[in-house]
């Protein structure tokens, strides 16, 4: 028995990226744009989806893939919207993964009629680091932070705040009750991700919800344009 050194030089996330690319190819074939919605637990992703999708999106057929550690509570909350909602649980292995990976999303694809959708929103499992590392084949990423979480979040989790195209600051109805300086938050965010787009929302009062809906509704057309340009 002797020891041999083997050069590997492989990124540990490559395996996930390969599956994410396969997902992306399936999404592109079906002409569906995919948005990965990420946040710490309780920032308000499901509540925002109810507010955004409730009135419907003009001309855009939307569906939701609900990631959850266990159970179907979030999917049940969206059931009344009468749009396709598929629940994906991440338990198993270590008793509940902290994020969705490309393979989990892949396993849920047979349950989704992609041809019937223009936009698929994936509600990721709450966590502030892993979802940024494990791509799922999405076109765009949204990071939701609530004002109850503290204004220095971007500095603490730059990985997440850098890996997104849109930052939603939710629960602004609570601004008068919490010590959250929106200008400071924007300043810290700018340090971490200069010029990233920000929408401030309250799922309770409806403030900013129309703007978020418009942003989401524009993703499929934008993706079609860039896909067309790439050919």
């Amino acid at each position: 028995m002797h020891r041999v050194k083997v050069r590997v030089v492989e990124d540990a996330l490559d395996a996930n990226t390969t599956i994410a690319d396969a997902n992306r190819a399936d999404f592109d074939r079906a002409n569906v744009a995919v948005v990965n919605l990420m946040s710490a637990p309780g920032a308000g992703k499901t509540t925002l989806l109810e507010a955004v999708l409730g009135p419907g999106m003009d001309g855009v057929r939307a569906g939701v893939l609900e990631g959850d550690v266990a159970g179907s509570l979030d999917a049940d909350r969206l059931a009344h919207l009468h749009i396709p909602v598929v629940q994906l649980n991440t338990d198993g292995g270590f008793g509940g993964e902290c994020h969705l990976d490309a393979n989990m999303v892949r396993s849920a694809l047979p349950a989704l009629d992609l041809e019937a959708l223009d936009l698929l929103i994936v509600e990721n499992v709450g966590n502030l680091v892993c979802p940024a590392e494990f791509k799922i084949g999405e076109d765009a990423r949204i990071m939701v932070a609530s004002v109850a979480e503290g204004q220095d979040k971007p500095l603490k989790y730059p990985l997440m705040f850098r890996a997104c195209e849109l930052v939603v600051v939710n629960k602004i109805d609570l601004l008068e009750h919490v010590r959250f300086d929106l200008d400071k938050f924007r300043y810290y965010l700018d340090q971490v991700h200069p010029d990233v787009h920000v929408i401030t929302t309250s799922a309770y009062t409806g403030e900013g919800v129309d703007e978020l809906r418009d942003w989401l509704a524009a993703v499929p057309a934008r993706e079609r344009r860039t896909a067309g340009a790439a050919v």
């Binding site: 020891r3 050194k5 030089v9 990124d11 540990a12 590392e133 991700h193 200069p194």
Partner: peptide, 28 residues
């Protein structure tokens, strides 16, 4: 966590290194 250019304050910035999560070599 400071990703804006310290010289011109620009935001069009590329990462040269620091995103590695690489298995470089193994001994078997």
């Amino acid at each position: 966590a400071a990703f804006r250019c310290p010289a011109c304050a620009g935001s069009d910035v590329e990462v040269l290194s620091g995103e590695e999560l690489e298995v470089e070599s193994i001994e078997v």
